[in-house]
């Protein structure tokens, strides 16, 4: 049933109509509420969005506008209360925790503002972690992790723990970790929020390179300079899409 729907969307979406790349994800009138005490907070209001394969998109908005909530839904870390979220031609709704974990592992790479590296593991082990959940052997995992560390320029830091790395280096390790599972989409929530402006630019350059290699990248930010470095900006205000450029 939903597969047919999926094909329907695939065939009649604006992307295909214009003969552009297929969309990797599509949001249809997404609504999200948070219960705060007796009050029901309407955090996302009828959010429609379509992101195509290989796009570099930023989601901009003031603090509290719902950016992280939206990104968490995209990353299948959170549920939504109304609408449809299509990831490829899969309707992401009512997934079991196990299914959600599989999708996250296979399709999505996360980059967080506060890096979220495991402090007791080395840079190499941190990068290798998603492959552990794909059942890849330790040896193969570490070999691949080393390649990704090289790619972000941190090969010499492989055996160091996160507390021995600078903020920028930590974020590079986190990006390598996001990439190692060969996901379809990289979701970055304020990836430069904890970094100085010079380092921020380097991280944006790195995300730009990743995009250039053909990957879909979605960056949440409230900084105009960061948004300016993306192809398209989705603006959120009080949970509503303001304008798409």
């Amino acid at each position: 049933m939903w597969r047919q729907d999926g094909r329907l969307y695939g065939g009649s979406g604006p992307g295909s109509a214009l003969g552009l790349a297929r969309s990797v994800l599509r949001l249809n009138a997404i609504n999200k509420y948070y219960q705060v005490g007796s009050h029901r907070l309407h955090v996302l209001r009828d959010v429609d969005a379509e992101i195509e394969d290989g796009e570099l998109v930023s989601i901009m908005g003031a603090s509290g506008s719902g950016k992280s909530t939206l990104l968490n839904i995209l990353g299948i870390l959170d549920r939504y209360d109304g609408g449809e979220y299509w990831l490829g031609d899969t309707l992401v709704r009512d997934l079991s925790e196990t299914q959600a974990a599989r999708y996250r592992n296979r399709f999505i790479g996360f980059v967080f503002q506060s890096f979220n590296l495991l402090p007791f593991k080395t840079a190499l082990e941190n990068v290798a972690l998603p492959l552990y959940y794909q059942g890849v052997s330790r040896r193969a995992r570490n070999r691949t992790a080393m390649q990704y560390l090289e790619r972000v320029g941190l090969a010499e830091w492989a055996e160091h723990r996160p507390n021995e790395l600078s903020g920028g280096q930590k974020q590079r390790v986190a990006i390598a970790r996001a990439l190692i599972g060969k996901p379809k989409i990289i979701l970055a929530d304020e990836p430069t929020g904890a970094l100085d402006s010079a380092t921020s630019l380097q991280i944006m350059d790195l995300l730009g390179e990743i995009h250039a290699s053909g990957m879909t990248v979605i960056v949440v930010t409230h900084e105009a300079e960061i948004a300016a470095r993306t192809q398209r900006v989705i603006r959120l205000r009080d949970g509503k899409i303001e304008a798409a450029a």
Binding site: R102, N116, L129, P130, Y133
Partner: peptide
């Protein structure tokens, strides 16, 4: 808690 959250985000199933 944080570590387990990170692991889950990276693909750890409840079973694992």
């Amino acid at each position: 808690t944080k570590e387990i959250g990170v692991r889950k985000a990276l693909g750890a199933t409840p079973r694992s």
